[in-house]
Design a protein around this nucleic acid. Structure first.
Lengths: 190, 190
DNA sequence: GTCTATATGCTGATAGAC
DNA sequence: GTCTATCAGCATATAGAC
């Protein structure tokens, strides 16, 4: 039995916001709907959060905290740089695709007028720097552009949320392995 | 000197809609703003389009018509399957990144309540089938999953619109070549 | 075809009681 | 901390004159 505290009411509200943003999109989600889903009145939200924009930033913070933790854990699990990359990709993709509302909410485009937009982009960049390090440790052909490689891999992974369905498509880990394998080996037999 | 006709007023309206959707996002863009940008009154829009949703579908139609034309033209330009793929990717990426408002508008998530959502997804699928054919023609190692390969490539390309800036990053064609090259050759030197 | 005028409803946010 | 009540504004869409 948990006592209701300011902290867990805030969490409850954040969950509700993630759910609404993820289902309806940020603009179409209303403060009323978020309040409903958290069993509160609209006005009560403003005790915990300054504004709707503030709520979006907080959802991003939580999502990036979670995925940083998951991907970061894979970082020191192996010696071989390619294996480290594989594992980080698997963690990234698993979190993204099966991590629930927070990630669906975060993968949408951030509307241009949102206060705190810059902070959101900064948090993303910070997280993605994990992949810069992973790619930097690879031994690559001298003409390979490492930025392009990192962005290619992140793009392939991040785009999956537009098409991936749990019941139809390969498991996130399988997908991650295939992505890395396609890069690592030569696909040209001709 | 062009006479104002229903057809070119419609085009003007479509351009305005693409601009507003691309700048503000679909939900945040208002019919007033679209009308303003087309130098009309709000009510006049409804002579040409049934609803705001209808406008979004029309913008998608036009965008997909344009990119299909560009990418399709690259399809028969070469004999070698890898060269054909390279060229189709270059065309896809060039159109996406330098094709203006229509593509910025189309790359955003389609809100779940939009009437005509299914039609939009069908148009996308139809377009992307070009890449299924291109990948089908490649000679690949027997354990390569062709769906994963296609989706990986399309993901890498489509995600570029979240980070690419004209003044900072490589030209679309260069990027496309690097993407394909990363797949075609082996990156693992160890 | 485009206009003016307006219906109807929902929006984010605030004031102030409890 | 949460509530009731409400503000002021903007949304999409329609009616009907011209």
């Amino acid at each position: 039995m948990t006592k209701p505290t300011a902290a867990n009411r805030r969490t409850q509200l954040l969950d509700a916001a993630a759910g609404c943003f993820s289902r309806d999109g940020f603009e179409a989600a209303s403060m009323r709907a978020i309040a409903d889903e958290a069993s509160m009145r609209t006005a009560s939200i403003y005790y915990h959060f300054e504004s709707k924009d503030d709520l979006l930033v907080a959802v991003h913070e939580e999502a990036l905290r979670r995925i940083s933790e998951a991907t970061g854990a894979a970082l020191h699990a192996h010696d071989d740089p390619w294996e480290r990359l594989e594992n980080a990709c698997a963690a990234h993709l698993e979190t993204l695709l099966t991590g629930g509302n927070y990630f669906t909410a975060v993968m949408a485009q951030v509307p241009s007028r949102v206060e705190g937009r810059e902070m959101i982009f900064k948090m993303r960049d910070d997280y993605e720097s994990i992949f810069s390090e992973l790619v930097a440790d690879l031994e690559l052909p001298p003409d390979t552009d490492k930025d392009t490689l990192r962005l290619m891999l992140l793009g392939a992974m991040n785009w999956t949320f537009t098409w991936w369905h749990r019941d139809r498509d390969p498991k996130p880990r399988t997908l991650a392995m295939r992505f890395v394998s396609n890069l690592r080996t030569s696909l040209d037999l001709s």
